[in-house]
C-alpha cells in the first residue's frame, strides 16, 4: 500500500492509472460485447464430420453444399444454408425441427434426431459455409442475469402477439403457427430470436441486444417459476377455455345438484 501511495505522487502515476482504466474498460467491453463472430472454435475434424452428417441427412433438400434446392415447379425444397450460422443449426436440429419428417406448413418441434455432438459437428460445417450468427454466449442464457420486468415489456411488445402473453402459442395464416414457449431451453429461445427460424422475424442484436434477449429469457423463466397462483391454468389460453370450463365442468356439477334436488327420494 505504501509503495503504491508513494508512486501516486509521481507524475506518471496518472498516466498509468488512465492506461489501466482503459485496458480494464476495453477488457470488460470485450467480455460483454455481444459476439457475432465465431465464438466457439470448431476443429477441422468437426467440420469434416459435420459435412458427412450433412450429406447423409440434409443434402436432399438443402443441396450437397448447402446452397438450397428447388423442385421442378420452382418451389423451395430447402433454403440455402450459406450464412445462416451455427445458431440456426443448433436451434433447428437441437429442437428436432430438422431433419424435417415431411414437408408441411411448418416444421414441428420433436425429440432431436442428432445427439449434442452431432449437432455441434453439423453447426461447425454450416458455420464454415459462410459467416452467420454463432452460438449464444452462456452468460446471456442465465435467467439470473436478466431483468424480468424489462423482459416482460420486451416480450409483450415484440413476442406476445404471436406466442401469446403466457407463451402458450398462437395461430398464424394458413396453418402456420407460433409454437408454445413452455419448456423451451433458454439457448433455443435466444437462437430463435437471433436467427428467425421459419416465419419468425429476425431479432438480431441490432434490434434486441443480447441483454434484451437475456431479459426475455429471465421473464419466461419467471413465468414458469411463478406457475399459476389461482389454481389450474387451463392451458393459459384465456377466456375461451374459461368459458368452455363453465359450460362443461361447472354446468355439469350444477346440473347434477339440480337433478339430485329434483329427484324423488327412495
Amino acid at each position: 500500500m505504501k509503495a503504491l501511495a508513494a508512486r501516486r505522487h509521481h507524475p506518471m502515476a496518472l498516466l498509468v492509472i488512465l492506461l489501466l482504466a482503459l485496458v480494464a474498460t476495453g477488457g470488460l467491453y470485450a467480455a460483454f460485447q455481444p459476439r457475432t463472430a465465431q465464438a466457439e472454435t470448431y476443429t477441422a475434424d468437426d467440420i469434416q464430420q459435420g459435412e458427412a452428417l450433412f450429406l447423409a441427412n440434409c443434402a436432399t433438400c438443402h443441396g450437397r453444399s448447402g446452397e438450397g434446392l428447388q423442385d421442378a415447379d420452382g418451389n423451395t425444397l430447402g433454403p440455402s444454408l450459406i450464412g445462416v450460422g451455427a445458431a440456426a443449426v443448433d436451434f433447428q436440429v437441437g429442437t428436432g425441427r430438422m431433419p424435417m419428417e415431411n414437408s408441411g406448413a411448418q416444421a414441428w418441434r420433436k425429440p432431436p434426431q442428432m445427439n449434442e455432438e452431432q449437432t455441434r459437428q453439423l453447426s461447425a460445417y454450416v458455420a464454415s459455409l459462410g459467416p452467420g450468427p454463432s452460438l449464444p454466449d452462456e452468460q446471456y442464457l442465465d435467467p439470473a442475469n436478466g431483468d424480468a420486468t424489462k423482459g416482460g415489456e420486451i416480450f409483450r411488445i415484440n413476442c406476445a402477439m404471436c406466442h401469446n402473453a403466457a407463451g402458450a402459442g398462437g395461430a398464424l395464416t394458413r396453418g402456420k403457427f407460433a409454437p408454445t414457449l413452455d419448456g423451451v431451453e433458454p439457448k433455443h429461445v435466444y437462437e430463435a430470436m437471433e436467427t428467425g427460424p421459419q416465419n419468425m422475424p429476425v431479432f438480431n442484436d441490432d434490434n434486441l441486444t443480447a441483454q434484451d434477449k437475456n431479459d426475455v429469457i429471465a421473464y419466461l423463466h419467471a413465468l414458469e417459476e411463478n406457475g399459476s397462483p389461482g389454481g389450474l391454468s387451463l392451458g393459459s389460453l384465456g377466456p375461451v377455455t374459461e368459458g368452455l370450463y363453465a359450460w362443461t365442468i361447472i354446468l355439469s356439477l350444477l346440473t347434477a345438484c339440480a337433478v339430485w334436488l329434483g329427484a324423488k327420494a327412495k
Binding site: 416482460g152 415489456e153 409483450r156 411488445i157 406476445a160 402477439m161 404471436c162 406466442h163 401469446n164 402473453a165 403466457a166 402458450a168 402459442g169 398462437g170 395461430a171 407460433a178 413465468l223 399459476s228 397462483p229 389461482g230 389454481g231 389450474l232 391454468s233 387451463l234 393459459s236 389460453l237 384465456g238 377466456p239 375461451v240 374459461e242 370450463y245
Partner: peptide, 21 residues
C-alpha cells in the same frame, strides 16, 4: 382450484402490445 383471468400475465394496458388468442 381453477385460475381465471390472470391479468398479471396479460400485463398493464398499453396501446402497443397485443396477445395471440
Amino acid at each position: 382450484t381453477t385460475a381465471i383471468n390472470a391479468v398479471w400475465i396479460y400485463g398493464p394496458y398499453d396501446p402497443s402490445p397485443v396477445s395471440a388468442g
